[in-house]
Design a protein around this nucleic acid. Structure first.
Lengths: 341, 341
DNA sequence: CTGAAAGCGCTTACAG
DNA sequence: CTGAAAGCGCTTACAG
């Protein structure tokens, strides 16, 4: 590869001038610019990023920290990864993937080698030790998710509060009043621990009470089989229910199957609304689930943008954004009927 | 961060000596080593990777090139990404994600900035322009997949040939002889184009003929809805079939639903074997599908290892590996019966 | 076994 | 507007 030195020689200018014209960092006369550009063209010059990184002390690489032992890799995670990578590139950055364990200790070791300018932290917990670690190490970062009090942090997250309220509203507008929430056991084992589950359940309960309705919720593991079993639990423990909000993507199809096997017809006998999943996943169920789908693609992009804004000093104020899940058609919610069971 | 210079000063040695002891690249006396290590410890020194990269002309970064417009992001892709990232790190490398369009033109632009030592190319086509581009640019690379004639290339891929033969065998051992293949329309629109579909269909046909059976295949898009429609097509066009091999992960659940709605009981009336999907996906169907699951995790790791072996000059011979899909229990295959339709 | 020094390919004050 | 030069943090012949 041709170097900047080669270009300078070829154009009869100094290497500094080449740098100035490439970066538009100092005025360059039109004639000189033309010479330099011709030389670059001719030599097929591409600026070496490693030299640039060392000199400028900015690698323009950011890392995506994700849980190595992802408890449940929903289909939406891929969209998140890929949209983050695409957004980074559009902004002139590269995205590296860093699997880390959920407990702290590794992040400083990773960031201290100078590879990345900043990191995006996925699957943030209420009290996340990694956040402290990042703060201590001085690494700029953005969260996908929120800690308990994220007021001083850069983050993007799903607006679970409004999403669950909208989910309740969707069902009440269809005439439902006995609405049960089925969520993910991962969160409820440590209810305070994982944001999505805790925030969602709180919001569900608040919204139900606000409407004078009695909240009721239960939980199952994130597998189709667990979802199937949960169907039996629902029928036994919540026989009055006419609507279910399920926030457990991987259990949802099994839950629907379980209900079908029990003779429940959806949505005639029971409405099921899947929250935080994707249209693709929802379409796997039979009947296809009405879903409030996760804004994974948007979050990936926004997380990257938030971080890079910060890195480039463009972030005049802290960027903190919440995005709602989007209600998408489906065949699993309908008017409330008397419970058939 | 402390630099190597700081460590050298602190230990009263030259910076070269620090480098030698860190890299074990020249003999260092035990006493000196101890001094250097103590200094590193005390200063919390971590070798800066950018400086190292510039001096050594190796960034120890590899790129994963994946199709930006992935036609169908199966759940298994995430496992691939994450296992590749984990494997890279274990070997002292970093993995960057590079979305590219499927047609050529971009890869040289990406590799020529000197960011990566090599690349892994996903979703390889029979005649893949990107392969030529990589060869021309001199970038070391490994394929996930195979071109038409990959004999001179480093690759890892699914052993579609043996997998489909095993799929046919699984069903014939259960007494089936009318076995139909349902695959992915993406491949058959350009049958020569996409390896998995072409290789699988060829192998299916060969194996059927070898057993004196008549091959028959059809195709549908990669969506649950298309799968559902495909169920009707099967019953209309292949009424004699008692077994179906479906190589279309995203259509599989819909296919099963479609059959159920048509009154077909699986596996009593019809056996369905899902090939190249994952246990997670297979579990979404009702009944859970018997599946030959994609070795995504293995492929991710192997692809990275193959590339890095090559980069480090460890690859005495070309690394070319094929991995079969693994048959996993499920409830959708059983003894052949007279077609009920 | 250890060190002085050149050099990897850039950026950026500083001077003119 | 342009250039000479220092420097980013390392590695690696070369010399001793």
């Amino acid at each position: 590869m041709a170097t900047m030195q080669d270009v300078a020689r070829h154009a009869n200018v100094s290497i500094a001038t080449v740098s100035f014209t490439i970066n538009n960092t100092k005025p360059v006369s039109p004639a000189t610019r033309a010479k330099v550009e011709a030389a670059m063209q001719e030599l097929g010059f591409r600026r070496n990023v490693v030299g640039r990184a060392l000199a400028s002390k900015r690698t323009r690489i950011i890392a995506l920290l994700f849980p190595a032992l992802q408890h449940s890799f929903s289909g939406t995670v891929v969209h998140f990864f890929t949209s983050a990578a695409a957004a980074a590139r559009e902004l002139g950055y590269n995205l590296v993937l860093w699997p880390i364990s959920n407990d702290a200790g590794q992040t400083t070791e990773l960031t201290s080698t100078g590879l990345v300018d900043g990191v995006i932290l996925m699957e943030v917990q209420f009290d996340d030790p990694r956040v402290e670690e990042l703060e201590k190490s001085g690494t700029p970062f953005a969260l996908i998710g929120r800690t308990r009090d994220p007021s001083a942090l850069t983050y993007v997250d799903i607006n679970f509060e409004d999403t669950l309220a909208a989910a309740v509203r969707h069902l009440t507008e269809l005439g439902h009043s006995r609405i049960v929430l089925l969520d993910d056991a991962v969160g409820s084992r440590d209810l305070e621990g994982f944001g999505p589950v805790g925030r969602s359940r709180d919001s569900y309960e608040t919204e139900m009470r606000r409407r004078g309705l009695e909240p009721a919720s239960f939980t199952c593991e994130a597998t189709p089989r667990a979802g199937k079993a949960a169907a039996a639990v629902l029928l036994r423990n919540f026989p009055q229910a006419t609507g279910v909000i399920i926030q457990n993507e991987l259990a949802a199809t099994g839950f629907v199957s379980g209900l079908r096997h029990a003779g429940i017809e959806i949505p005639r006998d029971l409405s099921v609304l899947s929250v935080g999943s994707s249209a693709e996943m929802a379409a796997m169920a039979d009947p296809e689930l009405t879903v409030m789908s996760s804004p994974s693609t948007e979050l990936g992009r926004m997380g990257v943008e938030a971080l890079i804004d910060q890195l480039e000093g463009r972030a005049s104020e802290l960027r903190q954004e919440l995005v709602m899940c989007t209600l998408e058609g489906g065949q699993s919610t309908g008017p409330a009927a008397t419970p058939a069971h």
